[in-house]
Design a protein around this nucleic acid. Structure first.
Ligand code: ZN
Ligand code: ZN
Ligand code: ZN
Ligand code: ZN
Lengths: 157, 157
DNA sequence: TCGGAATTGATACCCGGTCTCATTGGTGAT
DNA sequence: ATCACCAATGAGACCGGGTATCAATTCCGA
């Protein structure tokens, strides 16, 4: 938060809200800042807690509502982690894509749909389905976490 | 249920349990039957209700525990529907694959991983991640529902 | 400035799923 | 068959994410 590297992303989120005809209220601005400030994925509860640390009195429901709104604008996306719990990641609303998520630190990369579209199309045709949606999620260990891991292993050896 | 087209699937599920060293108790048999009897996806609550209709006194926790067990054996898989709710589908445990689900009737088809493996691999390499898991889910309208839909449309016209 | 619409917070509620714990049932060794 | 032991079960408390309600507030456009 605070003017910094993410302030432009904050601004983009707010613009998306306005463009869609929603008010850019202080609460929503706060959520936008918090979202923009996270590197990887985050849960609603985390956001709420961080939000409360900065500014008292942001309601739980308000946070959920803001996230729901941002999700509907495709500014964030809800992930289903392998653990079964839910998390959100900030997202480029302009282009369909998928996510590669580090299961250790939560960092997330956008993955272009690429050849997948063709694949999905073919699967639909082959099965006679009219495909309406698809979801691809990749989970793994990011370079940083991987490096940290091997480093630790070596000091132990 | 009842000896029928799905009795062999029921048996396969039970064999999977035994093979993994778990007891094939009456409750688990019941769950296996119920699972085998569903064409498409089902929720834990549905299963519980159907189970109670056949045989009183199967505990909620028991059903959840059985499903968890079957999921760990890859005999069923938990889906995250676009709606956000969870459902299970029966699954071939022997080969990695994905699911194509009808958003109208819930019917589900197994989809071979095929080229996806290569794609996933490449994405991992390109981003320096060590990929641990991936999930692909496809949603659409199955041929039957599609046909029913157009038929209805025509009678209205 | 004013009135209606949008937003908000508190709180109750819902629902899927898990935990606890006392009871029961199955299994394998004898 | 018996016994001891571990697995499985049911009831119910519990939990966490998310939604519904509703009155109070804030916003915004005329
Ligand atoms: Zn994204
Ligand atoms: Zn990482
Ligand atoms: Zn269908
Ligand atoms: Zn796959």
């Amino acid at each position: 938060m605070r003017p910094g590297i993410n302030s432009d992303q904050t601004e983009r989120i707010i613009q998306a809200l306005k463009r869609a005809g929603y008010q850019a209220t202080p609460n929503r601005r706060l959520v936008a800042e918090l979202v923009a400030a996270t590197g990887g994925h985050f849960t609603a509860a985390e956001l709420l807690e961080r939000g409360r640390r900065e500014r008292v009195n942001i309601g739980r429901a308000t946070v959920f509502r803001a996230l729901e709104l941002l999700a509907s604008l495709r500014v964030v996306e809800r992930l289903d982690l392998p653990s079964g719990s839910h998390a959100y990641v900030v997202c480029d609303p302009d282009e369909h894509h998928h996510h590669l998520v580090c299961s250790t630190c939560g960092r997330s990369e956008d993955i272009a749909d690429g050849e997948l579209a063709r694949l999905v199309d073919e699967i639909g045709r082959r099965n006679g389905y009219r495909i309406e949606a698809h979801r691809l999620e990749l989970f793994g260990i990011c370079p940083a976490c991987s490096a940290a891991d091997t480093a630790e292993r070596e000091t132990l050896a």
